[in-house]
Design a protein around this nucleic acid. Structure first.
Lengths: 231, 231
DNA sequence: GAGGTTTTCGCCTTCTGGTCGAAAACGTTC
DNA sequence: GAACGTTTTCGACCAGAAGGCGAAAACCTC
């Protein structure tokens, strides 16, 4: 088969959701060889008549309610000839994001696993998970990708906790609010949340202005002067 | 064949080189059907025992001296079922960069074509070329990727011309020098170039401190405080 | 030496991000 | 209802990064 140059093409998804201290990734436990008992990313064979994005959405729908997946983007191709058993398989990996307040129904073989305590992982899916987490962290700082992690409306403290968990380090609420509002990605709703049981000033509620990915400012330098004459 | 779910996998390369007013892309003219006479990106079939990056380098070596290609990175997968004639093919696209002073030998069917006046393009290779150019432009502002466009040593004016051509808009020499040196990607050589035939102060020469890709500052905001506890 | 050309450098302004502490708005307790 | 603790919000201040401009430097030719 491979002698003809034809190769099986898979799609895989690193689906992340921000949970209490660290993000969690959606994994399912393999029941059959190879790698029986190990945990794998959702995915499957690229079918005829669909492109890779349509394919990953189709396979994802078997493990999680697609309506809860707020963002999907292509990560990278994994094609090491030894990345799995023969016959050879090439995989296109995707990153998927689920808001922290969503709790979609998942099958019995599937679970959210915190990324700092992963179970035994099948094939190279650990490396792929790492790539997904890296991509999320990079994009948090220069895009509005937070819209895919947060509930529809939220307080700045909630958003701060989400960012801190995703990034793995402390985030200042003051700065987060100022930066995101200045960039226009955060808009106040005018409403406030009820204070917690221990009191405290009621938090103002915000929402993301857009729910599609937008690059806010990767161009610290070398910005077009005014009217950019695109080539 | 596709009934078995096995698909031909190609690799393609958008090889860019900054030329006088606008960048040029390496294309070759097809001599056989399908799309005979049209211009296509270098590439070919993914072989057994090689990953996609090794494969694209192998195919690229047929069209250009690989030693002149200063940088190669994966772009994206193109998998629309109708992107070419049957049987179906999936392609992993790469971006390759050649310094402006290099002039590698190329075969007779191959040529550098300015991106603002492309000949008739085969298949979806026009879209892929566009993706490569977009990637280069984005990375120019927050990485040191300029090392792959410029000669070993160069003046600030030369570099300014390269950046302006790649970005498609005016770039200030003052800012370019200050930003790149502050980020540590540009270091002075201490030498100066000979003035032009019409005179002028001799230009100080610089070089890139590193010749491998490094992200300089995508994290305008949300930087880790000090010791980042990585998860 | 005068005039033209190209590059370099310093100054100024603006904007962004980081830090800190005070003030606001709640609930609880005495 | 006044004092206290808690949480959030807001303003002030500071450092650094970047854009713009013009003067100065260093060369050429005539």
């Amino acid at each position: 088969m491979e002698a003809e140059g034809l190769i099986a093409h898979d799609v895989l998804a690193v689906v992340l959701r921000i949970t209490s201290p660290v993000p969690s990734v959606l994994l399912w436990q393999r029941a059959r060889e190879p790698q029986s008992g190990r945990w794998a990313l959702p995915g499957g064979r690229l079918g005829a008549g669909e492109d890779v994005e349509a394919s990953v959405r189709r396979h994802l729908a078997e493990k999680v309610d697609l309506a809860e997946v707020a963002h999907v983007e292509q990560l990278s191709v994994f094609s090491d000839p030894d990345r799995g058993p023969q016959p050879r398989r090439v995989a296109t990996a995707f990153l998927g994001l689920v808001p922290s307040d969503a709790d979609p129904a998942i099958p019995g073989d599937t679970a959210w696993r915190p990324v700092d305590a992963l179970p035994p992982i099948a094939f190279d899916h650990g490396e792929i998970t790492r790539a997904g987490l890296d991509r999320l962290r990079a994009k948090l700082s220069y895009t509005n990708i937070g819209f895919a992690l947060a509930p529809d409306v939220f307080s700045i403290s909630e958003l701060r906790r989400l960012y801190a968990a995703a990034l793995g380090h402390h985030v200042s609420a003051t700065n987060l609010q100022r930066v995101l509002t200045r960039r226009g990605v955060l808009v106040p709703t005018g409403t406030t949340a009820a204070p917690g049981p221990t009191g405290g000033r009621p938090a103002a509620l915000f929402r993301f202005s857009e729910h599609t990915l937008r690059v806010t400012d990767p161009f610290a330098a070398l910005r077009p002067p005014s009217g950019a004459g695109a080539v």
